[in-house]
């Protein structure tokens, strides 16, 4: 969630380029700046250190819904848990050294282990801001979200970050929709997220409802509470025991195996193709 904010503003602060023939549309930078202002301002955003979100998540097509809790730590560590009746827990975590997933259904999985301590931490809001000068943005038109007019802004960050289109509400100034192509496995798909119901959450305002649509699937998160800069529960970012064992094993494998013997699937696949 904090990363969402970071990404939003990382994309938002780039040098704007006024498109030819679109003089009637507001400048992209001014739209982003207005959203920042409405959300609490730059200083407030940069003061965000921790985030705790509690709410409900529902997958309409599956008829599945349950509780969701998200923790984000000061260094960018994350832990998210969904508790879905009929399915059990679905957890994901990243403490900077280990990125992992675990579910009642499918069991534990080590996604990645870092070769250097903290190597998996993603850019924080502040670190992301340093990249802003290289982001191109332009206002490309007027659209509607939930029946309300909004300005479309096209953002083109440097690779490998994906380009995205955002929509800023004409009246409130808030970001109300993002649209981007993401890669899942071997596939690319268009993901559209609508953001609604911005509320005060300490120093900044956050959307309390997000609805994400992609081909064949959609999910919605209704936040019950969003706490900014509150201390996380001490154990929130600890690795579960099975994950700790599997991560240690994976690290050992990385140390002892020659690269061509690494059992990780991507390498196996590349080897097969040859």
């Amino acid at each position: 969630m904090k990363r969402l904010l970071a990404g939003m503003f990382f994309f938002g602060l780039g040098w704007s380029q006024r498109p030819v023939g679109r003089e009637s549309l507001p400048d992209a930078k001014s739209l982003v700046d207005r959203h920042v202002q409405e959300s609490g301002g730059w200083e407030a955003l940069q003061s965000v250190r921790t985030l705790i979100v509690r709410g409900r998540i529902s997958f309409a097509e599956l008829g599945v819904s349950g509780k969701v809790t998200v923790y984000e730590g000061e260094e960018g560590e994350t832990y998210q848990v969904m508790e879905l009746p009929g399915a059990g827990k679905v957890e994901t975590g990243n403490n900077g050294d280990v990125e992992w997933e675990r579910s009642t259904i499918a069991g534990p999985k080590i996604v990645r282990v870092a070769s250097v301590p903290g190597g998996l931490l993603r850019p924080s809001a502040l670190r992301g801001l340093s990249l802003l000068p290289s982001v191109k943005m332009e206002t490309i038109g007027l659209d509607r979200v939930d029946g309300r007019p909004c300005y479309q802004v096209r953002l083109s960050p440097p690779a490998p970050l994906p380009a995205q289109t955002q929509c800023y509400d004409r009246d409130s100034g808030f970001l109300t929709r993002t649209s981007l192509s993401i890669r899942l496995g071997d596939s690319t798909m268009q993901v559209v997220t609508v953001l609604r119901d911005y509320r005060d959450t300490g120093p900044v305002k956050n959307p309390f409802v997000t609805e994400t649509q992609m081909p064949g699937q959609s999910f919605r998160i209704d936040s019950d509470s969003v706490h900014v800069n509150e201390p996380l529960p001490p154990e929130a970012l600890d690795l579960p025991e099975d994950i700790r064992i599997l991560a240690a094993r994976k690290k050992d494998d990385m140390r002892t195996l020659e690269p061509e013997d690494d059992p990780d699937r991507p390498k196996l696949r590349r080897k097969k193709k040859r």
Partner: peptide, 14 residues
């Protein structure tokens, strides 16, 4: 699916 290719990965236990 038309939009996604997903492996049924095996997740070894400790």
């Amino acid at each position: 699916s038309r939009f996604l290719t997903e492996d049924f990965e095996i997740h070894p236990r400790p």
